[in-house]
Design a protein around this nucleic acid. Sequence first.
DNA 1: AAGGTCGTTATCACCCGATA
DNA 2: TATCGGGTGATAACGACCTT
Length: 359
Amino acid sequence: MMDQNLSGETVKCKCCPNSPRRVPELDYNICDRWRGIVPQSLEILLDRRSKYKQLKKDEKDELKRQKYDARQSALKWILVCSFGYLGFKNARFGKIDAHIATCAFSRIFLHRAVAIAQARGFKLVHGIVDSMWLTKADATAADYEELCAVIREDLKLPLSFEGQYRWIVFLNSKTDPQAPVLNRYYGTFQDQDRTLKVRGIDVRRHDTPKIVEKCQTQMLAILKEADNSREFQALIPQVLNTLREYASKLRSGTVPIEELIITKNLSKMPNEYTHRVPQAIAAQYLIDEGGTVHAGQQVSYVLTIDPSTIPESQALPPELADDDTVYDPERYVDLLVSSTANLLQPFGYDVKSLTATLR
DNA sequence: AAGGTCGTTATCACCCGATA
DNA sequence: TATCGGGTGATAACGACCTT
């Protein structure tokens, strides 16, 4: 968007239909007379972000480092939204053609970056949008930095090396167990702290109850000590012990309600729900109590024992829970099992086998 | 914004045994 | 032989949330 002058008024502009600046694949013309308002605006944000990144890099004080990191991260999300907004039809400066053009450039750049990496002996494990995961036997951080510099120079784009993983697990798709998916993975970096990076799974979701989050966090803490896949496999029994521990705690009925709360964002008014989903049931309880619940609002609930088959009794807002409220241990155990399976699926464990080990 | 995953609920077909 | 109900499994629709 920046360097290519991609903006609502510059892509397919009327003033220079024969501009030499073209969009790859699509051959749209890009204005050669004016700089677009989008790149002009983004420049401010990009400059500021790279300043904070640099400041963080040069800073020793941990608190300040965190502060700079938070600022560059806030700017990152403003920039991500700017890209999204370019394709939003109601946006003042939006235009779908400019959005499509941005995607076309991004494909070309990613392709080119992959080609450069491969030409230098790196193997592409996975790539998405503006990121690549590469391997090369015995490659050092310096090798990756060097590759970065080459690509940066070639594409004339800022590019940074995030780190080297000791190991990384890409989870397979549940709908197509053959295919690993791009938005669910976890791994540890080779730094001193063995920093974990986790995307997409339970601990990253805000609707995961605390009990499951704690359990999965503990499991990840166990696995992060592995240096390679052999050590990883050797740690799996400890992970299974953690699962058993949490499951029996749940079954003993002693887990406090606070750890069992599930919170969801309502996407519609409670009466618009066609399915008797727990969040709709919980919302109805709140309305019955004289509360008001709107789309966009958060609603919390606890999964309760359902002695009848009335859907109403399967969920209860924690606000209405009392000492007699009994949670449904088995449904929470199911959540634990599924979160465990999310970690161990590539190693031959699934919900069925894990459930069996808990009997 | 776009492109996904995934879990839950609803629905329906089907099987099977019980019942009349 | 017809009917009913429970259980099971497949499928569609729904709904939430995640990734960049």
